[in-house]
């Protein structure tokens, strides 16, 4: 294939390496309509091929542009514009043109800030709804079942409440569930009584609709307060807070590590801690949303809407206000009472 190439004109100079070899040589690339030639310093043609078979690397900064010839020979050149002119390809440098330091980058910067806010505010919730929607119901049902088994094995004893008391609460519960109507959303609502000495007056909701209430809670709270608490827990289930929180913390973690990329030795840990703290703020928002949902639901079912805030008052007088701050999962009781008062006064 070695022949004389002195009369080939339009060309770019650079350096070349034969396939699988580190042997560097000065070379130039020439292209006309049908043929491309790689020519060395002694004017010998090293490779000859169809110009359409040249593989152009993307242009990144000022670094040399790479051209791979069909046989694997690598050609490198600094003459970016000449090469693009010669090969007639400007697509590979499209991004490069936007990346150049230019006042336009201020717009990019602003768009980044707006975009981050938009992703946080709308993008993540949409992704979460999608993920929740895609989660198979049988999985959610088995989550409830196995968590109940664990609770029973580790933290709970059978309830010691008299049957009459249980029946009363069960009737309230059924009233509340029937008031849900279309908001029930295919969950399997179920009430479970447990004696959990370590937990105090407390209640919890599992993703598929199992709601656990401790004996302590029923013993100290009025029927309206119990109804308020049940409404709150039903709110968690109906608005799918449990699943959302799981997806939220996983999604936030992944998104931050993907967007930030390699942030260097110290910053990385700080960022991931930050994401954890932000997901806690999300959990506090959920508590307030469930309070709001629960109060309205209890009211529709025929209970006093002040029941929940009465319960929080009771908790404050027994245990004092637990201050909600940026590393707790629940807001403080006082904050929740104020939030509920604002709700009932507004109507």
């Amino acid at each position: 294939m070695v022949h004389n190439a002195q009369n080939i004109d339009a060309s770019v100079t650079g350096r070349a390496y034969p396939p699988l070899s580190s042997r560097e040589m000065a070379a130039r690339l020439s292209v006309d309509t049908n043929t491309a030639w790689l020519i060395d310093d002694d004017e010998r043609v090293i490779v000859q091929c169809d110009p359409l078979k040249l593989q152009l690397g993307t242009r990144v900064g000022r670094a040399e542009r790479h051209v791979v010839l069909p046989d694997g020979t690598l050609f490198l050149t600094n003459h970016h514009d000449a090469l693009e002119h010669l090969v007639g390809d400007r697509r590979g440098s499209l991004l490069h043109r936007y990346e150049r330091l230019h006042p336009r980058l201020m717009i990019v910067l602003l768009a980044c800030l707006v975009g981050t806010w938009g992703v946080w505010k709308y993008g993540l919730p949409i992704l979460m709804s999608l993920a929740v929607w895609m989660t198979p119901p049988t999985l959610i049902a088995s989550i409830d079942k196995t968590i109940m088994q664990t609770i029973d094995a580790i933290a709970a004893e059978p309830s010691r409440l008299p049957d009459k008391k249980k029946e009363e609460v069960q009737i309230s519960f059924d009233l509340i569930i029937s008031a849900l109507g279309s908001q029930a959303g295919g969950h399997d609502y179920k009430l479970e009584f447990r004696n959990m000495p370590g937990m105090g007056p407390n209640a919890m909701a599992l993703p598929n609709g199992t709601i656990v209430i401790t004996d302590d809670l029923i013993n100290i709270a009025s029927p309206d307060a119990v109804a308020g608490v049940i409404g709150h827990e039903v709110g968690h289930v109906a608005q799918q807070h449990g699943l959302r929180q799981i997806y939220r913390s996983a999604g936030g973690f992944v998104l931050i590590s993907l967007l930030a990329g390699d942030t260097g030795p110290i910053l990385e840990d700080v960022l991931l801690e930050g994401s954890l703290i932000l997901s806690l703020s999300y959990s506090r928002q959920h508590e307030l949303a469930a309070d709001q949902f629960g109060v309205r639901l209890a009211e529709r079912a025929g209970f006093d809407p002040k029941g929940l805030s009465e319960f929080f008052d009771l908790m404050v007088s027994h245990h004092g206000d637990q201050h909600g701050n940026w590393f707790s999962t629940h807001p403080g009781f006082k904050e929740r009472i104020e939030h509920l008062d604002a709700l009932t006064h507004n109507r």
Partner: peptide, 28 residues
């Protein structure tokens, strides 16, 4: 020079909800 590459990478990654970050990684 790297600032331009980085900020354009970031914008495209945000707009594509992280999908572009694979290309951004290669470019970086």
């Amino acid at each position: 020079e790297f600032f331009g590459i980085w900020i354009v990478n970031l914008l495209l990654s945000i707009l594509t909800l992280g999908i572009y970050s694979a290309w951004a990684k290669v470019r970086t």
